[in-house]
Simulated assay, not measured.
Amino acid sequence: MLNIVLFKKTDRQLHDWFALFLSVLLTFLCLPVAAASVDPKIVLILDDIGIRYSDRQALALPKEVTFSILPDAPLTTELSELAHAQGRDIMLHMPMEPFDGQAMGPDGLKVGMYETQMEDLFDRALHSVPYAIGVNNHMGSRLTSLAAPMRTFMAMIKARNLFFIDSRTSAQTVAEETALDAGIPVARRHVFLDHVRTEAAMAREYARLLKLAREQGVAVAIAHPHPETLRFLQSKLPHLQAQGISLATVSDLFSPRPSMMTKQKRAEIPLAAPK
């Protein structure tokens, strides 16, 4: 009888020890996963490239900064070639109709165009921006708010194996939704860095960008090649890594180019209205 009791006590002790060991082991195994997930990144897209001769100064920025180049502008081809030679990601900054009637520039897509008209302009724009791997909208507050032309446009993007970044020039945009519905790799702009071109305003938006990156894991900013913006970025980006944040390319959002968001996840991500 005594031997049986001792066996039961030993068995219970072994069970308790094994449970403790398993708990410690699982905690240890989870540590690398948690550490790997804490790797915030920002993606910086420089829009409106190709209009001014001063845009060449943007080539001095880190090569992770993406150039979104306007089609058929004075420096479109030159800056596409130079940026590509640096190994920089290049996007087509596709002009689209805004609400306020502002001039879009060459190759702009308008509400009411036939599909063939849109396709001809899109192909012309892509031809003028060699090496483009994705598209974001230039202006476009009116066009991106309408589902029908956006569905047509997303079908064109899908057929050419490109991704789309919604610049979110209007809170009414449906561009991201239609891209998701079409099964296109898609992401959105979270911050306009230089909507107000003062040092103080850009510093506030930059701080908000870093905060969003820490909260979400990744945050996307759009800026422009204004001299004051370039000076600001040249002063800030060299110190980014010391703040525990990486500067990623836009193509890093899509590896190996799946959608950044699935339909199941879209409701979990807050809609970022323009700031």
Results as ranks from 00 to 15, higher is better:
residue 203 A to W: 02
residue 167 S to E: 11
residue 26 L to F: 14
residue 82 L to V: 03
residue 230 L to H: 09
residue 128 S to G: 00
residue 28 F to W: 15
residue 111 V to R: 11
residue 150 M to N: 05
residue 238 P to K: 10
residue 122 F to M: 10
residue 46 L to Q: 14
residue 110 K to M: 10
residue 171 A to R: 13
residue 249 T to P: 01
residue 245 I to T: 11
residue 212 L to Q: 14
residue 114 Y to C: 03
residue 135 V to H: 03
residue 79 L to M: 12
residue 3 N to Q: 14
residue 158 K to A: 13
residue 154 M to R: 00
residue 129 V to S: 09
residue 185 P to A: 11
residue 109 L to M: 10
residue 47 D to R: 02
residue 245 I to A: 12
residue 205 E to R: 14
residue 175 A to P: 08
residue 180 L to Q: 13
residue 234 Q to I: 00
residue 113 M to G: 01
residue 100 D to A: 10
residue 155 A to L: 04
residue 91 M to A: 06
residue 262 T to N: 09
residue 207 A to W: 05
residue 270 P to M: 08
residue 192 F to T: 06
residue 260 M to Q: 10
residue 249 T to A: 07
residue 80 S to Y: 04
residue 133 I to G: 08
residue 240 L to R: 11
residue 107 D to P: 00
residue 33 V to M: 14
residue 35 A to F: 14
residue 186 V to A: 14
residue 3 N to F: 14
residue 224 H to F: 09
residue 203 A to G: 09
residue 139 M to H: 10
residue 271 L to V: 14
residue 190 H to T: 06
residue 258 P to R: 09
residue 141 S to I: 09
residue 14 L to R: 15
residue 241 Q to N: 10
residue 2 L to R: 15
residue 218 V to N: 05
residue 142 R to I: 03
residue 55 D to L: 01
residue 168 R to G: 06
residue 29 L to V: 13
residue 53 Y to C: 03
residue 207 A to K: 15
residue 121 L to H: 05
residue 118 M to K: 02
residue 71 P to V: 03
residue 131 Y to R: 05
residue 108 G to F: 04
residue 142 R to W: 07
residue 132 A to P: 04
residue 144 T to C: 12
residue 13 Q to S: 07
residue 180 L to R: 15
residue 173 T to C: 13
residue 26 L to G: 02
residue 85 A to R: 13
residue 243 Q to F: 07
residue 179 A to D: 10
residue 89 D to T: 11
residue 181 D to C: 02
residue 217 G to P: 08
residue 188 R to H: 07
